[in-house]
Nucleic acid binder design. Structure first.
Lengths: 196, 196
DNA sequence: TGGTAAACACACCGGTCGGTATACTCGCAA
DNA sequence: TTGCGAGTATACCGACCGGTGTGTTTACCA
C-alpha cells in the first residue's frame, strides 16, 4: 500500500464487447437517466446486441450496478488525485475535494450520478442503492482520513459535516442553479476545519 | 399581507377529477419515480381515465409540472409553519427549517422530490427544471429573510451557505443513509450564524 | 329550455420496454 | 481436431408507453 487515502477496489476485467457496453451505458445512463434508456439503445451505441448485454451482465439491473461501480471507481480516483497533489494544512486538503468536484462537474454538469440513480431506483433496486450508499460512506471516510493526517482529532462529526457540505454543493450548483455554490462550500469548509 | 416570510402563490382551482388526478400523481411520481409511472396508472389510481388527464393537463409533462408546483406549495407552507412558531434569535429560526425537514422526511423518506425530478427530467423537460430551480431559489430567499428579520446583515453569502447545508442534509439523510445528518446540519448552521 | 363544461367509457395508434430463443461465425487452446 | 467462450444477427414475446378519437352521460346555469 503506497497510500492510505484511497481505498478503492480495482475493476474486474471485461471482455472487449463488455467494455464497449459499459462505456455506452455510462454515457447514456448519466446523460439521459437510467429509466429513460433501454438496453436496446445501449446495445446500438456499443455496436453490439442485446444478447451480448444479457450474456455479460445478466439483466439491466446488473448493467446498472456495473455502471455505478465503475462510476464510483472513477470519481474516487479523480478525488484522490486532486487531494494527493496538495500538501498543506488539513483545511487546504479538505478544500481540494471541492476543486476536484469543480473539474468533475465540467464533464458531468448534470449533477451527482449517484443521487440521480438513487432518485430513480431507490424503490426498485436494492443492489443499486447499496452502491450509492457505499459511495457516500466512502466520502465521509475520506474526510476523516484527511483530518487525521492533518493532526485534527475528530470522532466523526466534523468529517460527516464536511461530506454534508460537499453534497450540498453538488445539489446547489446543479439542480439549484447557483453559480456560487462551490465557493460557498469552500468557505464553509474552511470555517469548520479552522474553527476546530 | 399578514406575513413576509412566505411569499408563495396559492394554487389554481381544480375540477374534482383533476384534484384526484393530481393527488394520485403526487403519490405515484414521488414513490416510484416520474419516468417509471405511466399516465394510465395515474388514471387508474385516480379513478378516472387517461382522456380526462389529457383534457385537464394537456400532456404528461403538464401533469408533472402541476405535480411539482403543488409539491413546492406544500413544502413551502410546511416550512413556513414551523418557522413561524419560533421567535428567538435568528439561529433558532434558521435551525427550525431543519426541524421542518425532519418532520417532512417522516412522510417523504425517499428524499427531495425536486432533486429526484431534476435527476429524471433535466435533459427532457425545461418546464420541470424551472420549477425545481425556483424552489431552490425560494429556500435561499427564505434564509435571507430570516437573517434580515434577526438583524443579521448579509449580502447573500450566508443565506446561500445555509441553503447549501440544508440540501446536503437531505442528501446525506436519504441517499447517504446517515442518521446523524439532520443534527450535523443543525450544528453547522448554528456555527455559521453565530460565528457572524 | 337549451347550452356548455366536465367527466365518463372505450377502442385504437405506432412505438418501445425488458427479456428470451435459435443459429451461425470466429479464434484459441487442449 | 475438437470443443468452448465470445460475439453477431435476427426474430420473437407479452406488456406497456404517451397520446388521440368518438361518442355518451351528468350537472349546472343563463
Amino acid at each position: 500500500m503506497t497510500t492510505t487515502i484511497s481505498g478503492t477496489a480495482d475493476e474486474p476485467t471485461l471482455t472487449p464487447a463488455a467494455r464497449r457496453i459499459l462505456d455506452a451505458a455510462t454515457d447514456l445512463f448519466y446523460s439521459r437517466g437510467i429509466n429513460s434508456v433501454g438496453v436496446e439503445l445501449v446495445a446500438e451505441q456499443a455496436g453490439t446486441t442485446k444478447k451480448t448485454i444479457y450474456d455479460r451482465f445478466g439483466s439491466k439491473e446488473g448493467l446498472v450496478v456495473a455502471y455505478l461501480e465503475a462510476r464510483a471507481r472513477r470519481w474516487q480516483a479523480h478525488v484522490t488525485d486532486h487531494v494527493e497533489q496538495v500538501d498543506g494544512p488539513a483545511s487546504d486538503r479538505v478544500v481540494a475535494v471541492i476543486d476536484a468536484l469543480e473539474s468533475w462537474l465540467e464533464m458531468a454538469d448534470r449533477g451527482c450520478g449517484f443521487v440521480a440513480a438513487y432518485a430513480e431506483l431507490s424503490t426498485s433496486s436494492e443492489r443499486a442503492t447499496a452502491v450509492v450508499r457505499a459511495e457516500k460512506e466512502w466520502m465521509r471516510g475520506l474526510f476523516g482520513r484527511l483530518l487525521a493526517q492533518g493532526g485534527i482529532e475528530d470522532d466523526g462529526l466534523l468529517a460527516r459535516q464536511l461530506a454534508l457540505v460537499q453534497e450540498g454543493a453538488v445539489v446547489e450548483s446543479t439542480a439549484g442553479g447557483s453559480s456560487y455554490a462551490l465557493d460557498d462550500a469552500r468557505a464553509v469548509m474552511r470555517a469548520l476545519v479552522e474553527g476546530r
